[in-house]
Design a protein around this nucleic acid. Structure first.
Lengths: 149, 149
DNA sequence: TTGGGTGCAAACTATTTGCATTCGA
DNA sequence: TCGAATGCAAATAGTTTGCACCCAA
């Protein structure tokens, strides 16, 4: 179902209806609890990069209640199930990327903003030497750090 | 002066003699104190990836004394002067890369080892779309995560 | 001499953990 | 019902900070 189709089918302020998020979690073998649904609904409303603390604040600001430990548990679970991707850029906090498609990042050192590299860019990571025996590439992370200074 | 030339000129167990390290720091506008010299001498003996704690332990194990705060101060200073490069891979600690030449990394998820991609590999990061106005690329970090699992 | 550098311990902060309570199926 | 999930607070660990003392120039 496309994004536009979602929008036609829901009267929620979220692009994803609750029952759709429920299905998403079930498909991935995750028991859909109230807290996980609230986190997922906030997370997947659009493609974004969020810290655990930010998720905690935002979900709770919407009038629901989720504890800090549950946010960490849930994000760890979502990561292990491949629903989100951890991006380690900032020394002090992990960012969770709600876009799991292979893509790379531009990190603005001045503002701390994390954005995606647009699709038309050319980034090639091929023919790597030095891989340990029997290892396969699990993930490739490309972060381009930019600044005005 | 090449690495081999260094080796001929010193009887130290380090590839870099103390006076050479002193010169390196001065060239970079860093006051060469005893602690900074000890850290630098350990750091630049070879190309390696070290955590702050590891540097602290190793330098002190050699019989010298450097405090934890000084290690952090010094590594922050070396980073800002471009003598080392921070690599953020591990959620719990920063790695300092004693090799500042442009190069990329292979991170072994199973062992936690961080190694360099060999020079013959093809990694191209060019023609990036989506750079903010007036920004220049300060650094490009490519980390290839591998695992046997 | 003197301003930058250092050491120490306490403070800070993101994340994890232990355990009693609650909830989904 | 019952194991899994949650909440809370305390614990953990890397890093930073405040401040008195010291040393390179």
């Amino acid at each position: 179902m496309s994004y536009n189709e979602h929008m036609k089918e829901t009267i929620s302020h979220y692009p994803l209806a609750r029952n759709e998020v429920t299905a998403l979690l079930k498909e991935n073998g995750i028991t859909p609890t109230r807290q996980r649904l609230e986190i997922a609904q906030y997370l997947f409303q659009k493609q974004q990069h969020l810290s655990a603390e930010r998720i905690l604040e935002s979900v709770n600001a919407l009038g629901h209640h989720v504890s800090r430990a549950t946010v960490y548990n849930t994000m760890g679970l979502f990561t292990s199930k491949g629903l989100v991707r951890e991006v380690l850029i900032d020394r002090e906090r992990v960012f969770y990327d709600s876009n799991c498609q292979p893509h790379h990042h531009i990190y603005n050192l001045d503002t701390g903003e994390l954005n995606d590299v647009e699709g038309s860019s050319d980034i090639n990571v091929i023919n790597i030497s030095g891989l340990p025996e029997g290892c396969r590439i699990v993930d490739t992370e490309v972060v381009i750090k930019v600044s005005q200074k």
